[in-house]
Nucleic acid binder design. Structure first.
Lengths: 117, 117
DNA sequence: CGGCATCCGATGCGATACTG
DNA sequence: CAGTATCGCATCGGATGCCG
């Protein structure tokens, strides 16, 4: 398939997954199902609550994830991938596969450079 | 295929294609073949020469594109996708397809909202 | 033609502290 | 527990001007 630049919507996808922690969030939700805010924070250790909230809100606004509030005490909020969000999987899989190849590529390339190429 | 978070390399791909104009550059090179610096600048009108150079250099360092200098006068420099860079096509295609779907999705969603949902 | 040097502003992200 | 409020900074990209 050839991408026609004039009607190219690649950046539509970029805009949605751009954000330092969005991929990590999506991958966690895809792998583990519904996850609470605190659990997400533990799953992505370096993220602060403020930024985690930001990224979640942005994903929610694009209908990629769902936010479910359980009116309990203590409060409980779960996030999970929406049906629509699951349509991102082909992109993630393609990126993942390429990432694996890229690791291997860098390996061999750097080895060559060590030998003076 | 299920992505195993522990050995997930999705961000490897992200790191390579992140950059405001990199996708536009790659798509242009894929569609039009070898392209000169000036032509790229005309193809991506909003980019300034400084930033265009930056993005090209970063893509070049990852071996995604080739930079060919022709020692003529006036100077001529052509950029083109490397063989390795072509391996990104599955990602771009997946993103493009999703982008098209996303446009349609937003259409119907916004129409619903207009009707008071 | 194909850049590079310099300056500058916006935005994204982080640190810390506090709250219903 | 699941956030919000404030502050601050670094990074990225844009504007402008100059050069081989």
């Amino acid at each position: 398939m050839k991408i026609v630049p004039d009607q190219c919507q690649v950046s539509q996808a970029m805009d949605v997954i751009i954000g330092k922690w969005k991929l990590a969030i999506l991958l966690h939700l895809l792998a583990h199902g519904p996850t609470r805010f605190g659990a997400l924070q533990r799953a992505v250790p370096a993220v602060t609550p403020k930024v985690l909230t930001q990224q979640l809100r942005e994903l929610e606004e694009e209908d990629i994830i769902n936010r479910n509030v359980y009116p309990e005490n203590p409060p409980k909020v779960e996030y999970d991938i929406s049906t629509y969000g699951q349509s991102l999987e082909p992109i993630l899989n393609a990126m993942h596969q390429w990432g694996l190849d890229h690791m291997a590529y860098k390996q061999t390339r750097d080895k060559k450079e060590d030998n003076g190429v």
